[in-house]
Design a protein around this nucleic acid. Structure first.
Lengths: 345, 345
DNA sequence: CAGGCTAATGATAGCGCTAACAGTGCAAGC
DNA sequence: GCTTGCACTGTTAGCGCTATCATTAGCCTG
């Protein structure tokens, strides 16, 4: 009873083709394919069979235009190669999975101008919502977001004013907490190693600001600092650590702006036979899973990335019954993971 | 002379709004915003000013429907947290940058069924092309791809038959080459450590097949193997290595299915004071930049990921003037990077 | 000065789908 | 019988844009 497949070379199929092939109206086909409204079992079968046989794939562009609904959620992040963002994505994807919404990723490469373009591009597809990393955007970008008429969630930072909602941790606070832990453990000659920041990474900058604030409160200040950009983070961590300790052999603590360079530094210190955490302590930032396999667990601070992704997606999906109409603020508490590279008090 | 910004609370703007605000027809506005056709300088200015003032963002859905053109390229990959795929993405993004095309990422989590859904979803947006990792897809997925009517590029593997074009390396060959190098270096008791594959990673499987083929040709076979799934790859690499060497202390070479577990194994071996590569050799796969910072460079094989991304994007963008009409096949040569964990011959 | 050209702009008709409403047939209720 | 209600299916009118063709004014050519 199966009719032969239709060989028709190439005109892209429309609802009409399926409608003709199955002998019902386009509307009925549309209903079947979307599982909407009442359709008799017999008709449903007939339509599905025809659609399958033809290899019909609905045109969501037309559907979206007609229904004024788009099941996409834009996600704008600075980079994919950072390991940090994929984890946020995981939280977002998981949460959206059963909502019919689909995340679409855009990458800004830490460039504000590029970010603006990406946001423009995304909004022009009229998504159901937008998740954007960070609170710092160009003025035009902020204006677009504010105008968009859909939920906007800025994530991974809450030190600032959001356009709409924001979810994440306070990096300033995270930096402060880490400094306090380090000082409490008795370290006094503390140095910082991180990315070149002024242009790029606002979150790393805020972390450092908080860190220095807390040092100042303890009557201390950074004794040295070292910056890098580009290249393999692990290798850079090594090089920077070596350079810094050659220059300032008296330093007794190294605070890294991320775990990867911290791991590089740790490997170098261990190879040199330095007593970690006795002679020198180390700490990074992020709680990357990767670190589990290192010879010693690097002290770090969890940035609650998974939770952040989940909460952001929930706001967009309207799963959060907070009573608040938009403009939610969700702060997570960064957790210190002392690991084995900071003295126990 | 600047008119005040319009506060209009919230009805999303259309071309008509801009047209009314600037006193020309919608068509002219459309022309200005797309830089198409002749428009006098005076009119252009007027329109742009109005569009900016209103904060108008064009509706690409409507535009795409009307013009039957969509500037999106779908990219379907198994995972974002693998480090491998972000690098391919980099190649794709760079190449598409100046073509007006935009990549859109979809993630299949190594599940064929999920992949099918993602492909369906992407095709329903009628993209200009699709880039899909791997050659193994569900039958339905293959049918959809074949029907799509746009360029399809399957990447990162060429051991099989493509739907349309394919770009990448032969994993079978890569496995073979690695085995030959290992045998040539004098190792004889060789073990394999990798992911649980049957269900998942076809490329890892093909690599292993090629590897065993070449061993067989040298009259050898794997003396042991160890599989894992999930968890921190670095930590797993450690654990598996320890388990395997406890079980078979006579093994003299460990072939890992990826660099991360290889790195974990390397760290463990070095801690144990094993003579690497004298007493035992190690090799991974992929050439992840990360490895640069390790105490010793792990032997590995570059999978040409950047080049693969670039070439795939070029095919979609029509930048490749090969004379071939679709159905291109581009093979890259995986390069052995002997590092410091395999004996010099 | 008709005829023809160009440059700039407008009018019209969809793109492929869905919302909203309008049937249609049939069984049950009075 | 007629009404009422229900289950199903069809009709109509856009969604916001762009392709295409038509129109207008201005200017040149012979």
């Amino acid at each position: 009873m199966t009719k032969p497949p239709i060989p028709e070379p190439h005109r892209t199929l429309t609802l009409r083709d399926v409608s003709e092939a199955s002998g019902v109206s386009e509307m009925t086909v549309s209903r079947v394919l979307r599982n909407r409204g009442d359709v008799s079992e017999a008709t449903r079968e007939k339509v599905l069979e025809a659609a399958r046989r033809l290899g019909y794939v609905p045109n969501k562009i037309a559907g979206a235009l007609a229904s004024q609904r788009v099941n996409l959620v834009g996600v704008v992040i600075p980079s994919l190669s950072n390991m940090v963002f994929p984890e946020v994505m995981t939280g977002i994807s998981k949460t959206l999975e059963d909502t019919g919404l689909q995340p679409v990723v855009g990458v800004s490469n830490y460039q504000s101008e590029r970010e603006e373009q990406v946001i423009y591009e995304m909004l022009s597809w009229r998504p159901s919502g937008l998740i954007v990393a960070g609170l710092e955007h160009s003025e035009a970008a902020r204006a677009m977001l504010a105008q968009a008429g859909v939920p906007i969630v800025e994530i991974m930072d809450i030190d600032g004013t959001p356009v709409d909602s924001m979810v994440g941790i306070s990096h300033r606070r995270a930096g402060r907490k880490m400094a306090e832990a380090i000082v409490a453990a008795g370290y006094r000659k503390i140095a910082f190693l991180g990315t070149h920041m002024p242009t790029n990474d606002h979150r790393a900058r805020k972390r450092l600001e908080g860190f220095e604030e807390a040092l100042a409160a303890a009557g201390l200040s950074l004794v040295d600092r070292e910056f890098y950009s580009g290249g393999s983070a692990l290798a850079k961590g090594r090089e920077m650590t070596e350079a810094l300790l050659k220059r300032r052999p008296d330093v007794d603590f190294l605070y890294y702006s991320n775990d990867m360079i911290g791991a590089g530094g740790l490997l170098w210190c261990l190879e040199q036979g330095l007593d970690v955490p006795g002679r020198i302590g180390l700490a990074g930032f992020n709680g990357v899973e990767l670190l589990d396999g290192l010879p010693r667990r690097l002290a770090t601070m969890d940035a609650c990335r998974l939770e952040t992704g989940v909460a952001a997606a929930e706001i967009i999906a309207g799963k959060r019954h907070s009573g608040v109409i938009g403009g939610e603020v969700i702060e997570f508490e960064p957790k210190l993971q002392p690991g084995d590279t900071i003295r126990k008090v």
